[in-house]
Structures are given as structure tokens and as C-alpha cells.
Amino acid sequence: MKKEWFAAKDLVGINGLPTTTQGIHGMARRQGWETRRRLGVQGKAVEYHINSLPKMMKPALIIQEKSAEYLCSSYHDPLLIWIESYKQLNDRERETIVSFIVREGMLAVIKRLMPAQEEIE
């Protein structure tokens, strides 16, 4: 995950968090979340570090992050998109996806061959 700092507006309503920025700021104060000033914003705007957020938040923020979207706009070849997507997976995810593709691919081949075999017999 590349993004480590989140504004309150980024966290509103995710995984049971408060549904307003004021609620987020209140929760952050009560729980002592790590903060820093937001760059380029006037006033007392702050961001919260991902490691200080409740544990339930990290998976939701990872899912929400648009990790491969920028790649699609620069590549027009579907194979390149698949290669870049594959590179972003960890070893366990790669093993899972390869297993799925092989299993589903083989099942599709078997289904296509079965009617042909039934005709021969």
C-alpha cells in the first residue's frame, strides 16, 4: 500500500467509522491517532497515519485504493495490463490466481471436449 496518510474526509463512513469529518476528528482525539498537518491546505487541516487507525481499517483502505487504474490508461494491450496486475500481487495471491485460472481453464476445455467424446461413443 502506497498511501500512508489519510484526511478525515477519506475515512468517513468506512468500516463503521463515524459518518462525518467531525466524528472522525473526535474519534482520532479520543484514541490518540498519529497526525500531521496537511500540506497545501489552509487552516488546521490534519491527516492521520494508517498505523494509528483501528486495525479494521487497513483492509478497507487497501481495497479502496486504485492501485492498477493508472496502468490501464497507459497500456492498450490487455496482456500488458495482466502482466502489470500480476506483478502487484504477493506470492500467495499469485499462487491463488494461477490455480484458479488453470482449474477454470481445464474445466472449460473438458466441457468443450465432452460433447465431442459423446458423439464418438
Score class of each variant (00 low, 15 high):
2 K>G: 10
7 A>F: 08
7 A>H: 08
7 A>I: 04
7 A>V: 07
7 A>P: 04
8 A>E: 00
9 K>D: 09
11 L>E: 00
22 Q>I: 12
22 Q>T: 13
26 G>S: 13
29 R>P: 01
29 R>L: 06
30 R>F: 02
31 Q>W: 07
32 G>K: 07
33 W>R: 01
35 T>R: 09
35 T>K: 10
35 T>H: 03
37 R>L: 04
38 R>F: 01
39 L>V: 12
42 Q>C: 12
43 G>E: 02
46 V>E: 03
47 E>W: 01
50 I>W: 00
51 N>L: 14
52 S>Q: 03
56 M>R: 15
59 P>K: 07
60 A>I: 02
61 L>Y: 04
61 L>H: 06
61 L>T: 08
63 I>P: 02
65 E>F: 13
66 K>N: 15
66 K>H: 13
68 A>L: 13
68 A>V: 12
70 Y>M: 12
71 L>K: 08
72 C>D: 07
72 C>S: 10
75 Y>C: 04
75 Y>Q: 06
75 Y>D: 03
78 P>L: 02
80 L>H: 10
85 S>H: 05
87 K>Q: 12
87 K>W: 07
88 Q>W: 07
96 T>W: 09
97 I>F: 06
99 S>D: 14
100 F>I: 10
102 V>K: 15
103 R>G: 02
103 R>T: 11
109 V>I: 12
109 V>A: 11
110 I>V: 11
110 I>Y: 08
111 K>P: 00
111 K>T: 01
111 K>H: 05
117 Q>V: 15
118 E>G: 11
119 E>L: 14
120 I>W: 06
